[in-house]
Design a binder for these strands. Structure first.
Lengths: 231, 231
DNA sequence: TAGTGGTCTAGACCACGAG
DNA sequence: TCGTGGTCTAGACCACTAT
């Protein structure tokens, strides 16, 4: 068996035995590599495998930590993010990084299929128990939400649409795939550049018009998506 | 900018410009690292980033290839895998690797919540245009499908249940997350051990009884999941 | 400023796939 | 058998975080 695999199994065993508990920090890479008698590169290989599996996560230049349970993101539930987090005993927070108005020409291709004029954009970070776990870019059709930027943008957008604009979403198209964080996203999430992620893209329609386009980049070990359907 | 990032951008540009077309093999790692004046390790780092992003894929000990478009896996469509592939102009194949009967005690925890007695299991590999892209383990409640192993197990299971057993699935629960391939799965898919994957887990019910439990491990660059819903 | 991870080199040997 | 990637070493320097 490969050396990094042995190291990964060793650490994974300590986690599953409870020697290392969620939230605790691992020893430094230099220290661990010495203890396990492998080079630092080999150890790092083991750590990144464990991270891909969701057992640990790295905070860039700070260290490695044992992961808490995955956040269960239920696509069927009407509950918003903060409510879902609360029902799982987690503390949620959303930070607005940036916002503005964008011309139709600058919008992502998948949005332009449905909406070609101006749109507001938001860049937000979602946290769980203080840890940033998701970067999102939200686009909202400008004509549907006049004066958007004066509203509170650190809460549920669906709630804002419903309460402040009386817009009810009646159709949703979702796409999920594996992707790579770009350097800015990685920096905002305090992870190493080139970390991969789970990308969720959603188009939200009201009365057959696209009003919201949302691209979410989740740290892959932090989330599990669930859905159910009658067939 | 980091050296591996420059190398990755360079190769990505060649792909998007069409200098490298889907399916073509890249030059060997040793050759590329010399051309780009970086160490082989740095080049490999660039290649694995590109793979995580779905632009290229590695076939273990054979080389690196430019990826074809992602297979669109539509969770709403009634179409089965081969039909979906055909409608996207792709040739699909399913190989049965192994099958047998398993005691209730050996079943995965998430299945045992619903079904605690014996179940048939299947290990299958799904291909697209000759390339293995997904490893799956299927469990079927033994009492629901007597004599299962004498049937054709290289085709749609849902179709088999409907046609041979008159079992109609009426409820489905799906879970999606990022995960790691174990060594046996990686070998079966001809990728490097420790490759990450997109895992789809499905429970299928008929008349409130679980009849099928399915764990699918997709190569992450090979698939995009889609779904839509009225809200 | 001290300690952490992030990146990188220039080799080496091994295991496996294809012909 | 040969060429491919897979793994590994023992260093080094840099960039950032925390304090």
């Amino acid at each position: 068996m490969a050396g990094y695999q042995e190291a990964a199994d060793h650490i994974a065993a300590q986690i599953s035995k409870g020697v290392l508990k969620p939230g605790t920090q691992l020893a430094s890479e230099r220290q661990l590599s010495e203890e396990l008698n492998i080079s630092r590169l080999t150890l790092r290989s083991a750590l990144t495998k464990l991270e891909a599996d969701g057992l640990i996560y790295g905070k860039s230049r700070c260290g490695w930590f044992v992961s808490p349970p995955r956040f269960v993101y239920d696509l069927n539930r009407k509950a918003n993010y903060k409510e879902m987090a609360q029902s799982q005993g987690r503390a949620a927070r959303i930070d607005l990084l940036d916002s503005g108005l964008m011309k139709g020409a600058g919008l992502p291709a998948r949005m332009r299929e449905h909406h070609r004029s101006k749109a507001f954009y938001l860049h937000r970070i979602r946290h769980l128990d203080g840890r940033p776990v998701m970067f999102e870019t939200v686009y909202l059709a400008a004509d549907a939400v006049p004066g958007l930027l004066e509203h509170n943008l650190s809460d549920s957008i669906t709630g804002l649409l419903a309460n402040d604009y009386r817009i009810e979403i009646d159709w949703e198209e979702t796409s999920v795939r594996s992707a790579l964080l770009d350097p800015a996203q990685a920096a905002a999430l305090a992870v190493a550049p080139g970390t991969h992620c789970l990308m969720i893209e959603r188009k939200r329609f009201s009365d057959s018009r696209l009003v919201e386009f949302d691209a979410e980049y989740w740290l892959p070990g932090a989330i599990e998506i669930r859905l159910s359907a009658q067939t």
